[in-house]
Design a protein around this nucleic acid. Structure first.
Lengths: 225, 225
DNA sequence: CGTCAAGCGATTTTCGAAAATTCTTCATCT
DNA sequence: AGATGAAGAATTTTCGAAAATCGCTTGACG
């Protein structure tokens, strides 16, 4: 894809992806030598990538003791959820206020794409999970795309990614992800009819329900690796 | 202070401070060699610190072309402000809901400290400006300290720091900062009487008024260095 | 038997120099 | 004159090794 990118950037996105999709587990130690081999680069790019990820909250640095993948916890997921409900709601509100026709069509388009992914996901190939996750992210992104606030959007995206890590971990640990096409369509309808109140409520419920599933999944199996 | 910290951490906080207080100006180029001399360290700590600052939005990296101090703009300040009003309001709401007596006393204490700083600040020593800025930050932090949401708080802090950069730049460019003890006391009273509605409104007005002053200052003198 | 300290191996952190890239200058050609 | 492009300078990016730090083992001593 992006072949001419700098090594640091490449390691950054790979590492980020590996953490986000659960290929690197929460709490896992990130030894410099191991990572250098894994991505076939020197120490500097690795270290720089880790620093960026630390600022984004995907990685934790204990001084002179090295990096670890950020831990997950019930408390953190709940906190994330609470905050996300508010931020997503706000972004939705602003987006509805400012969105035009092209914004609407983009929503319809991404909804269509999301709905096109086959339903059974849990035990099906990782391939399809990845596709669904991508369309799902893009659908939700399209809803708030018109909010016209880079600051708010970057916050939203950060929170979304953090939450998606829990989803990915829950999937990769054998959990099934609900593909509530209906739920998404309801949100879309509310948004397209410019019903702020309803949109925010449905968005909140959507997030809260997902959180409930994730919490259940976390409690069922031992949380710690 | 923290003598045993790692070099990277030291450079990070110094660099951050230099940007936040306007010793390094928006858009200014950050050459590796210059910074190495300035902080008397090798290239690695500098680079790593810059990467972290980039993720925090204080620095911009153009690949293979180096780092620059993040630009400021009217649009960004307005966006920041709008977002901050909402986030700060939410944090206030949650804090009021959960705060106990110790939270209240901490607020009273920091209000007292803030009010103790002499009024005339503009042309007075940089020293006093720094003290006021610190007490000001601590006062506002104490208001939301009980919100019990690390996620929301970290967002709030990030936004606060970004906004403070505009304040510092406006001061260092010769502007005067209003020290509205009354305004702060009004917020405190509303918060301590657990009047969420009033607290949020006053908080909003406080932020918006500051923003107006900053915008005026930005337009009066040429924005670009 | 337990505690403490010294030493050793493993790991992180930092440096200095090599490799790669971008920017500048200047000569050449149309 | 203007455009083109190739050599050289400045700067960023990356590497590999040195320096510093941490954690553990081992052995001495109370």
């Amino acid at each position: 894809m992006n072949e001419h990118a700098t090594l640091n950037a490449s390691v950054f996105s790979q590492l980020r992806q590996d953490i986000l999709t659960g290929r690197l587990l929460p709490g896992e130690r990130l030894r410099a030598e191991t990572l250098r081999q894994r991505y076939d680069v020197g120490g500097s790019p690795v270290r720089e990538a880790l620093m960026r990820l630390e600022a984004e909250g995907f990685v934790v640095l204990e001084e002179n003791k090295g990096f670890r993948v950020a831990d997950i916890s019930v408390a953190h997921l709940q906190d994330l959820s609470r905050t996300r409900v508010e931020v997503e709601g706000l972004a939705l509100k602003w987006s509805i206020a400012k969105g035009g026709v092209d914004w609407e069509s983009a929503i319809v388009a991404s909804m269509h794409r999301l709905a096109s992914v086959p339903k059974r996901l849990d035990t099906a190939g990782h391939e399809q999970n990845a596709v669904w996750l991508r369309y799902h992210r893009e659908f939700h992104a399209s809803l708030v795309a018109a909010c016209d606030s880079p600051v708010l959007l970057s916050i939203r995206n950060r929170l979304f990614d953090q939450a998606e890590r829990y989803v990915a971990l829950s999937i990769s640990a054998g959990g099934e992800v609900r593909d509530d096409v209906g739920e998404h369509r309801a949100i879309m309808d509310a948004v397209l009819s410019r019903d702020v109140e309803m949109s925010v409520v449905l968005s909140r419920r959507h997030i809260e329900r997902t959180t409930q599933k994730l919490l259940a999944a976390m409690e069922s199996r031992a949380v710690s690796a």
